[in-house]
Amino acid sequence: MAKGMMYADAIATAIIEEMQRDPNVVFYGQNMAMTERDPMLKKFGKERVRIAPISETAEIGIGIGAAMTGLRPIVELWMSEFMLVAFDQVINEAPRLRYMSGGQVSVPLVLKAGYGFCAGWAGQHSNVIYHTMMGIPGLKVVVPSTPADAKGLMAAAIRDDSPVVYLHPYMLTLDKGEVPDGEYVVPIGVADIKRAGTDVTIVAIGWMVKKALAAAERLAKEGISAEVVDPRTLAPLDVATIVNSAKKTGRVVLVDQAPRHSSAAAVIAGEIAEHAVGCVNALRMVTALDAPIPYSEPLENYVVPNEDKIVEAVKAVMAHEAVAA
């Protein structure tokens, strides 16, 4: 167990270990491996570690074609919004080709991108767009919230035979945590209860897990026991774990860095409405406000969810009686 491993290093560790394990894994992207001093390049050589031009359509499309014919490419896209210039490849190619071929081919591809960079990057580099991908059958979407999950889900993504969009919250890049040594695979499609509780279920994603855990800590001091559920995978979504927790506590707060109507929270609210009807008395969504992400700090802070907003929402749902289980 590596104590205090940084989130970014956990991702890199998984990539290195998987590349050592499987010679078919290749890794490329813009502005990487630019000199011979690059440690990945040194370790794996220029056939498997490559620098790409600023050509997202070709980078992703080439990844798809390579995946169809026997490689396991990881494409470093840096920021999730850069995928938008190549969205045909992400949405209409990678997840469809296996299906259209009647299961004859598979596309074991990892699209790695950071998202939600709330540090003054303004309107085009700070957004959360996972809702556009989590409803695409054939495409898997993972959003690790801890260094351990970052490692385990990257390993799982590389080994998966379906295309996986691996989204890491930029705001967690420097966070440290315990990371298991050696082979460590977190199964895709399995949510994780990051904190057990009995009064209220907080479902949070990515960077918001950290904020939800901090809020839960504060609430505990006030005698409110919050359970924090981290879906970890948005597609396919572990509906059962979320619904079971909701049924248990009877109160739900959904925390999502995305705007309300393009949030994973809205989808989860629908699942809870259908599957926990009669068991949940109160539900609140804490999402980004309906604005692009602004540049100036006070504006940015105002739009994005924070600990206070979560605490406030939990108190609001606590005003409702839980339904007797």
Binding site: G61, I62, G65, A66, M68, T69, D88, Q104
Partner: peptide, 27 residues
């Protein structure tokens, strides 16, 4: 598609499969 005969498949969106073919060349 007939991958057993080295024909992995096609795209219905014009031009996009040029990238896929290029990926097969990478392989």
């Amino acid at each position: 598609a007939d991958p057993s005969r080295y024909f992995p498949g096609t795209s219905g969106i014009i031009g996009q499969s040029i990238a896929h073919a290029t990926g097969a060349a990478l392989t």
